[in-house]
Amino acid sequence: MIEFLKRLLRTPQGAIGLFVVVLVLLIVIFGPMLAPNDPEKMAPLARYKAPSLTYLLGTDQYGRDIFSRLLIGARATVVMAVLATIIGTLVGALIGTTSAFLGGRADEFIMRTVDAVMSIPSLLFALLVVNLLGSSTVNALVAVAIAFAPGMARITRSVALSVRKQDYVNAAMARGESSAFIIRREMLPNVVAPIIVEMTIRISFAIMLFATLSFLGLGAQPPAAEWGLMVSEARRYMHLSAGILIWPSVAIAIASIGFNLLGDGLRDALNPRT
């Protein structure tokens, strides 16, 4: 574990990514405790305030403290993105491994179907599912998870197929090991690494997708402190104060960049050849 961390910190992507992601996760956990002001408290007299000691990043159109809202909002945006990606990855990995293991016509059928599903843009897919289930955070989570599953299935399958061709799997088959053993002990440990990398990078997509859904009014609902929703609400007032638009945008970008960098860092760190 220590050695792995060292490898991760060796590349700038890994080091910065890990730092940002840890910071974001800390905010997710401790954000509500750290928030200096009540994020929901409206103050008609303190609207569009510039950053000050009381309001570190200023206030929004209702006089709410932007900094506190960002700290609280991390939960809505980041936790949902991570959860949705994990669920999507698990479903996709299951489909992908099954397909690779079955092989032949069944594999072809599953993969062509996955391709077909992928021809619907993820955002559109998420919009449809949210609309079907009704706009809410949980439904948005399900939508993003479903939208991610086909892509992850594809990646898992190609990784699993390349592992399946390895001689250590052949050796296990020639030895007469059971299919369950081969999948669980020989293949899985070698399939997991690239999938974790891909998943980490996809978390950043999920963050953006969630924000976009909220922006379009199909994710979190006001007065929630979701970052995408904050941008959406700020649009009408951006002429009055750019801060209410800029800060949530920056928060989305930082969280997304962090996971992206961490994914690239993990790719190098998990590669046994480097």
Binding site: M208, L209, A211, S232, R235, H239, S249, I252, S256
Partner: peptide, 18 residues
């Protein structure tokens, strides 16, 4: 490119309009 892939369209669009 890291910054580019991290900005959703609605953010770039809104900021660009502003």
């Amino acid at each position: 490119s890291y910054l580019g892939v991290a900005l959703p369209e609605f953010v770039t669009a809104t900021v660009a309009v502003l």
